[in-house]
Computed example of a mutant assay.
Amino acid sequence: MTAADGDFGMPGSLARVLAEIGGERAAQDVRWGIQDIADGTGPDGAAAADRAKDETAAAFAGGTLTWRHILIEEVLEAFAEDDPEALRTELVQVAAVAAKWIQALDRRRAGLRAS
């Protein structure tokens, strides 16, 4: 197994997380139906995204980086987009970071450490 398999050192973990996410998405559709609502994003969010990038970089440099830093930076970058393709790219990054954070929680619960 390679580090690039997405399993974060736990065989099958990415598939399990994605299955849980798929289940939650299906439950959302049952509860709310199809929702065609506005994105609510755009350049007005650029300053907040820039601050989040700076905070993440400072936390990394200072050795205090957390998953919260990473996820909020990705979310605020998405909020700053008004181009649908760029917004989609940012939202994929949000989902990927959230999935990896879930995997990190699962690794901790299993008592595993990065090698």
Rank of each mutant, 00 (worst) to 15 (best):
M1D: 02
T2N: 11
A3P: 00
A3N: 06
A4P: 00
A4I: 09
A4N: 12
D5T: 02
G6D: 12
G6R: 13
D7T: 01
F8Y: 13
G9L: 09
P11K: 12
P11C: 06
P11W: 12
L14T: 04
L14Y: 12
L14F: 08
A15G: 02
A15S: 02
R16N: 02
R16S: 10
R16H: 13
V17S: 09
L18A: 04
L18P: 01
A19D: 14
E20P: 00
E20I: 08
I21Y: 11
G23M: 12
G23F: 14
G23L: 07
E24D: 08
E24S: 05
R25F: 05
Q28W: 14
Q28D: 05
Q28T: 01
Q28P: 00
Q28M: 07
Q28I: 03
Q28Y: 13
Q28K: 12
V30W: 08
V30C: 00
R31F: 07
R31G: 02
W32R: 05
W32Q: 07
I34W: 14
I34Y: 15
I34T: 15
I37M: 10
I37Y: 13
A38V: 06
D39M: 14
D39V: 05
G42F: 13
P43S: 07
P43R: 09
D44V: 01
G45C: 05
A46R: 12
A47S: 02
A48L: 11
A49V: 03
A49S: 10
A49N: 00
A49D: 08
D50P: 00
R51T: 02
R51I: 01
R51W: 06
A52D: 04
A52S: 14
D54Q: 12
E55I: 04
E55Y: 07
A58I: 01
A58N: 07
A59F: 11
A59D: 06
A59Q: 06
G62K: 04
G63H: 09
L65A: 10
L65K: 03
T66M: 01
T66P: 04
H69W: 07
I70A: 15
I72F: 05
E73P: 01
E74T: 12
V75A: 13
V75E: 12
L76Y: 14
E77T: 04
A78Q: 02
F79R: 09
F79W: 02
F79K: 06
A80Y: 12
A80W: 13
A80K: 04
E81I: 08
E81V: 05
D82R: 14
D82C: 09
D83T: 07
P84Y: 15
P84D: 15
P84S: 07
E85A: 15
E85F: 13
A86M: 04
L87F: 15
R88S: 14
R88G: 10
T89V: 13
E90S: 15
L91S: 01
Q93F: 00
A95R: 04
A95M: 10
V97M: 04
A98K: 03
A98H: 07
A99K: 09
K100C: 06
I102K: 04
I102N: 01
Q103F: 13
Q103K: 14
Q103C: 08
Q103L: 11
A104H: 04
L105Q: 10
L105W: 10
R108H: 10
R109N: 06
R109T: 03
A110L: 03
A110H: 00
G111L: 03
L112H: 05
R113D: 09
A114V: 13
S115G: 15
S115V: 09
